[in-house]
Design a protein around this nucleic acid. Structure first.
Ligand code: FES
Ligand code: FES
Lengths: 144, 144
DNA sequence: TTAAAATAAGATAAAAATATCCGAAATAGA
DNA sequence: TCTATTTCGGATATTTTTATCTTATTTTAA
């Protein structure tokens, strides 16, 4: 569905968002401890998300990652998937043809497009903020 | 979503099914020419599907792959996905946690389970027969 | 009986995804 | 200014997926 890199990124951002909501910055060691992701790989993914301005980073003591108030409100899962995996999930053919084309559809096109749009819709309507709040309240977990 | 191996397998089986409907066996060279898949890789996948009794194979001159009448009626996409990729797509956690657990859900569990079940339902209710008929009639394509 | 036509299977190769390592750069605070 | 802390970035390593190659085996038509 989405890559491991993307999964690590989403979990990390949820943790960062929860910390940012409390005015704290999150450092890598802390993030991976709570999200159960490999440290170096997650650091690389977070670097990519920083480039895309989805999160902000600060070097040095008291540094770490944070999400500013505006991003905290507006960022949704789709932003992260797009930044890490690109738009393949949202546009590719479900049977692996070189491109999806409704004029000359593959055998699963009609049924696949429905699913694909639901995934896209779900990603766009699910904000990091709501996920971070549920995590903060203990209703959900980031590792097991 | 599903692996390349699985995509090659599904496209190949649709072609085999369409040929079987006309009482013809399909040989590998023919299959990959029409489904646009790499020959050796597809042969390996078809071997796996033969082991799972989803298709039948015959060596020698006049040999090739075919689908018997019973399989032609009953096999659906889910059978092929299960045989090649296993059940990961149907049971894994959407955020990559070691397992999906509704008692201690990950942040996307509720929304992801809905999508996951729709995919499963789509796979189970989509028969190779209906896909093969649409392909045979020219309504859909297997390569581009 | 034999040669051709086909799949079967295992070894190998290439590419992509996942993950780690380490030195450099930046920064806050003493 | 010095030092400890932290991310950054590039090189490297490992694993998995995708794909190919080679040889063996089976089947059948002539
Ligand atoms: S052509 Fe395959 S999903 Fe659209
Ligand atoms: S726990 Fe993540 S999808 Fe169920």
């Amino acid at each position: 569905m989405v890559s491991k890199a993307c999964e690590h990124g989403i979990r990390a951002v949820i943790y960062i968002a929860a910390q940012s909501f409390e005015g704290k910055r999150a450092k890598i060691a802390d993030i991976v401890q709570h999200s159960g992701s490999p440290e170096a790989f997650t650091a690389k993914v977070l670097g990519e998300l920083t480039k895309h301005r989805i999160i902000q980073s600060h070097t040095g003591p008291r540094g770490g990652f944070e999400m500013n108030a505006e991003k905290l409100k507006t960022v949704h899962i789709g932003h992260i998937v797009q930044a890490i995996d690109g738009d393949a999930l949202y546009i590719n053919c479900g049977l692996g043809l070189s491109q999806c084309n409704a004029m000359y559809p593959c055998p699963v096109h009609d049924k696949y497009v429905i699913i694909r749009n639901e995934i896209k819709e779900m990603h766009i309507t699910t904000t990091i903020f709501e996920l971070a709040m549920a995590y903060r309240s203990g209703k959900t977990v980031l590792s097991r």
